[in-house]
Structures are given as structure tokens and as C-alpha cells.
Design a protein around this nucleic acid. Structure first.
Lengths: 172, 172
DNA sequence: AACAATTGTTGTCGTCAACAACAATATTTC
DNA sequence: GAAATATTGTTGTTGACGACAACAATTGTT
């Protein structure tokens, strides 16, 4: 109809730039030829999604040695800052479902980082506490998380990171 | 038993704010009492995750009438802007796996929005095109997506949204 | 012609959100 | 105080999603 602009990438894969014909060294270079995103560029959701994927991957990589993923870290942090919280309270605060928190806590309890103590004020609920080992571990996790945060600052710029935190402060 | 009344969150910061003492009208207000997040506040990943959840929910809600979700919208947009692209090219550009794109395209093709045309230059691949209906629909989807984008601007501020898009431009 | 790589497809596995249902316990209401 | 209602933790199901592996058809390479 109108804009055939950026070449479909199928016919005439690569024309100028004889990357392909020479010796058999250039491998799979076909369609990173500049595929237009059109409307997506102006969409905050798309940018945020891609950024979130990147940031989570870096977090997981940076804390791979201690095998702690973002959600686990958030749970440990909240319990560490508010000992005795119920599972419901933690779930509500972090925006995860209590059904899901059950498995998360099972795992953390198996690793002796968290303890479910029977609450005497409400025998339905569990009071969550970090074990001594959990507290020591969390200190180490926070060091690694700070390193991850430095990666973020390197990626987007320290002042941009600060600005972004301010912009999104309402969502924490 | 009787004195503790409603404070399962054992040693929570609580404080004043007598939300509870009066008549028995206040329902389930137990632990939205200000649960500290401690270290999480300074973490970009946490803020970005929460924001991403909010923004996707608003997108889904705003486009619920046409039953289009963010991923579907991104696929339609890319195909619309680059007709004839192969599935591999679309998957690469959007960072989704080609295995997953198969199901996405199955759905979109069932709805007569997209067509898989046998490419004559490479009989393995399909050239992706929007149908006439797909093009008309996409125009409507973009109007709704723009409305969603206005919700984002209302939520975080128009200039903050602009700034955020600039900061994250590298990830699109 | 023989070999390797790519494309679309199917399937599996593990993570995750959203629900529904349930037993044990607490709270409310009569 | 007993009955009705609500909440907490738990188990299970469903569907979306990413990461892989395997495969047939086709293309590229040597």
C-alpha cells in the first residue's frame, strides 16, 4: 500500500555490504537489518517490559552464586525488616498471592533462612522470622544486590537511575 | 486472648492511628499498617516490576473490548510496519521465541487479522501480512493504545513519562 | 552429493498469576 | 453462648510465558 520502506528482509537478504559471499566466516546475519517498530517506540509499556527483563536477568546472574531470585530476595528483605509478620501481610505488601507465598516460604524454610513460628495471638497464622543464618545470609545478599544496582547505574546512567526511582516511587 | 484483639502482626511498627477501636464497622484492616520495605525501596528492579504490572493491567483493561493483549499488539504493530517479514524476523525483533510466536500467529490468523503467505524466495518461511481487516483493526487498536498511554501520563505525569521513555530508549 | 544450518512446528519443563476449594481458627451477630 | 460469617494457610487447577529439545522440510556449504 504505502510504506514498503525497510525491505521485508526476505527477498534480497543482504545486498550491499558483501558480508555473505566471501569466505564462510559470517554466520547467521539475515534480519537484523533494521526492522521498524513503528508505534511501539512511543509506548512506555514496551520499553518497561524490555527493561524489566534485562534488569531481572542481571539480578539473577549477579546473585546466581547464592541462588536467590528477585522474589525470594524481596520476601527475605520484608521479613528481615518486619519480624513476626504473617504470611498474609507479606503477600499483601509484596503484591504476591498467599498461595504462591506458601511455596516460596517452603523453599526458604528448607534452606534454613526463614522460620514459621506459630503465632499465639492468632493460631491460624504464622509469625515469620529470619533465622540467624537467614540474617547473615541476607546481609550478603544485600551486598550482591547493591552490585547489581551498580550494573543498572552503568547501563542507564547513575542520574537516570535516580530519576527513574523517583518517578516510580509511587509504585513501591 | 482478649486484650490483643486484632494485631497478629506481632511487633510491627504500628503506632498511633486508632483505626480499629471504634464500633465494629471496620472490616478486614489488619496489616496495611505500614510494613517497611527496607532495602527494597532503593531497588530499581522492584519499582520497575510493580510499574510493569500496573501498566500491563491498564493496557489489558483499556483494550479489553477488542481482546488484544500487549504481546499481540506488538506483533500486529511490527507486521503492520514491515509487511512480508518472516516469523523468525518478528520473533527476533520482539525478543520472543519462535515457538511461542507460532501460537500467537495461530490465534491472530484464526481471527483473520494476519495471513501467513508462503514465501517464494525461501520455501521454509512464511511471509507475514496483515489482512485488510487486520489493518483496519490495528488502526482502532492504536487509538485505544494511545488512550492507555494517556492513562500512563496521568499516573506518573506527562513529562515524567517522556523522560522515562528517553531513559529506556536503548531497550526498545 | 554429502554435510551443516535455518525455519516452522510440536512438545516438555519450570515459573508465575489468578482462582477455587478446604480445614482450622477468629470474629461477628443474634 | 451458639450460629453465621470471615480470615489464614494450604492444596490444586488453569492459562500465559520463557527456555529447551526434537523433528521435517528446505536451504546453504563444501
Amino acid at each position: 500500500m504505502s510504506s514498503r520502506a525497510t525491505q521485508p528482509a526476505l527477498k534480497t537478504p543482504v545486498s550491499a555490504n558483501g558480508k555473505r559471499g566471501g569466505n564462510g566466516k559470517a554466520r547467521h546475519r539475515e534480519q537484523d537489518i533494521e526492522v521498524g517498530l513503528d508505534g511501539l517506540v512511543g509506548h512506555a509499556g514496551y520499553a518497561v517490559r524490555r527493561f524489566q527483563i534485562w534488569i531481572f536477568q542481571d539480578f539473577i546472574r549477579t546473585l546466581a552464586a547464592v541462588d536467590i531470585k528477585p522474589t525470594q530476595y524481596s520476601v527475605l528483605t520484608v521479613i528481615g525488616a518486619n519480624p513476626g509478620l504473617s504470611q498474609m501481610a507479606v503477600a499483601k505488601r509484596l503484591g504476591i498471592e498467599r498461595a504462591r507465598l506458601v511455596h516460596l516460604l517452603d523453599s526458604l524454610e528448607d534452606r534454613k533462612l526463614v522460620r514459621r513460628v506459630q503465632s499465639r495471638t492468632d493460631r491460624r497464622s504464622h509469625a515469620l522470622h529470619l533465622t540467624a543464618r537467614g540474617q547473615a545470609s541476607l546481609r550478603q545478599f544485600k551486598l550482591l544486590a547493591a552490585e547489581h544496582e551498580r550494573h543498572v547505574a552503568e547501563k542507564i546512567g547513575a542520574e537516570n537511575r535516580e530519576h527513574l526511582l523517583r518517578i516510580l516511587a509511587a509504585f513501591t
